[in-house]
Write a protein that binds this DNA or RNA. Structure first.
Length: 175
DNA sequence: CGTCTTTGACCTGCGC
DNA sequence: GCGCAGGTCAAAGACG
């Protein structure tokens, strides 16, 4: 029954979607090439010139990590796969305002990390996208945001700052 | 009153 | 089989 959409609806103002869509396409192509079983099979880096997120001037670099996840651990359901993208962001704020509405549904202490990991789910009806946010203990200025799945709907609010950042992202094929 | 966060319990996978 | 770690659920409370 779970039908995870990977096709974005057209939205003229959704550069976030465009970017993630690009990543998704790349990831799928690379997945065919490298066909690793699981884990972080590919790393994508992005350089962002001085920028601000939600009014906080920070991020100089982002690192995107694409991987695949087995899901369906929900009480005996079938196992399927979802793309997952991790972005390392150097910022003082944990929550990047990416234009979507998120509801926090959990927080867990992570081993070897003094900061907890937070779990968020997109609140758009029918959207199953999740994200995890975690601050690195060995680099307190670095926040890792992991997106799981892709949005099948337009952004709900305008986030010029974030769009500006994304628009300047340069995607490197690999590390 | 609706929405969101907090937080402990619960479930599952994995390594030993 | 057991214990640990990661991920999710859901009740209760906070907040606008």
């Amino acid at each position: 029954m779970e039908n995870y959409q990977t096709i974005f609806q057209s939205s003229s103002s959704s550069s976030h979607l465009s970017l993630l869509n690009t990543l998704n396409s790349q990831a799928q192509t690379q997945r065919q090439d490298h066909n690793k079983s699981n884990g972080y099979s590919r790393i994508t880096s992005m350089e962002i010139p001085g920028s601000s997120i939600s009014g906080v001037t920070q991020s100089n670099s982002l690192t995107g990590v694409e991987t695949e996840v087995k899901i369906g651990k929900k009480r005996g359901e079938k196992i399927s796969r979802k793309p997952r993208y991790a972005f390392q962001t150097r910022t003082q704020v944990d929550i990047l305002d990416d234009g979507y509405r998120w509801r926090k549904y959990g927080q867990k202490a992570v081993k070897n990390n003094k900061f907890p990991r937070s779990y968020y789910r997109c609140t758009y009806q029918g959207c199953t996208v999740k994200k995890q946010v975690q601050r690195l203990s060995n680099d307190e200025g670095m926040v890792v945001t992991t997106y799981e799945g892709t949005h099948s709907h337009p952004i709900e609010k305008s986030t010029d700052n974030f769009e500006h950042i994304l628009s300047q992202m340069q995607i490197y094929p690999s590390i």
